[in-house]
């Protein structure tokens, strides 16, 4: 990760060492203050309000079929929410696909309520059915808080998605030549003051995967994992991933697989 600029680097290191007493503690103090601020925020996570809306939506008759989502099967049987999102993505026999929480909720909305998946896919972030989706996600993931990530990588379809997710993680493209690994493929790195989880490792993956979806204090928005991944790609300067597309599922399986066994803290709270 460090740029092997050959002769330039040793000089830079020497220079840095000479200046450490002046600059590094200032940055450390800033990091400390930011971390304290985050701890304070965690006491009153505004996701609770979004989750309450989601719970109401879950139990509300909607769509052409005028039905609730109470019979939705998130993998643990119809209507079982407790711990369900900690075990996603998973392979679903009825659709023949590996699905994450959001694509699975789209299936339930379609089959139970008659709401077309395109209504979610084509909506903007936090608008229309996509906003309803965020509320439903907040409700469901709250019910997995404290559970352990448990995805079955032995299932052939899951194994395949994991391998595809790994290829996607390292895939460099676009005008800036970035991949996920550019920012999340090394230990202890930052962008500006933002610490970056090393998503190649279990510790990094659980810190990242395990704390999303999350409420973002900086913009006052609740973001689903699809939203999080979409914005990662935006910052990579690639083309836009389609909502619920296979690359987003593959990356989710890769991250969840790395995070397997770690404790979920959802909804998370972010700067």
């Amino acid at each position: 990760m460090t740029e092997p600029t050959k002769y330039a680097l040793p000089v830079a290191v020497a220079t840095l060492l000479a200046l450490v007493p002046l600059t590094a503690p200032a940055a450390d103090k800033m990091m400390e203050a930011i971390n304290e601020y985050r701890e304070l925020l965690a006491d009153g996570n505004p996701s609770e309000l979004v989750a309450a809306q989601g719970e109401e939506l879950w139990k509300t008759r909607r769509g052409p079929k005028n039905a609730t989502l109470e019979q939705c099967d998130l993998g643990l049987g119809p209507g079982v929410i407790k711990g369900a999102s900690a075990q996603l993505p998973r392979f679903f026999k009825d659709t023949g696909k590996v699905q994450d929480l959001e694509t699975r909720l789209m299936t339930c909305m379609e089959t139970l309520q008659g709401i077309e998946p395109q209504a979610v896919i084509k909506a903007g972030w936090l608008k229309g059915e996509r906003e309803n989706m965020a509320a439903l996600v907040a409700y469901v993931v709250t019910e997995s808080n404290g559970h352990k990530v448990k995805v079955d990588l032995k299932h052939p379809a899951m194994k395949k998605m994991y391998d595809m997710g790994k290829l996607a993680f390292y895939y460099r493209a676009g005008p800036m030549d970035f991949s996920c690994a550019t920012c999340h493929g090394d230990e202890g790195k930052r962008i500006r003051m933002q610490e970056l989880p090393d998503l190649r490792t279990h510790e990094g993956a659980i810190a990242g995967w395990g704390s999303w979806p999350a409420y973002r204090v900086s913009n006052g928005q609740f973001w689903t994992m699809q939203h999080r991944l979409n914005d990662c790609y935006r910052q990579q300067r690639t083309a836009e991933p389609i909502y619920g597309s296979d690359v987003t599922i593959a990356l989710s399986v890769y991250l969840a697989g790395k995070a397997n066994g770690g404790k979920v803290v959802t909804p998370g709270i972010k700067r």
Binding site: A173, T238, A239, E240, I242, S245, D246
Partner: peptide, 24 residues
């Protein structure tokens, strides 16, 4: 199969065309 997955997973939005996914 991976390349096919990438091809169907991305779209053009604003100034970011889909062909950004095709690698040098």
């Amino acid at each position: 199969e991976f390349k096919a997955m990438m091809d169907r997973s991305f779209k053009t939005t604003g100034i970011a065309p889909k062909h950004r996914m095709y690698q040098l």
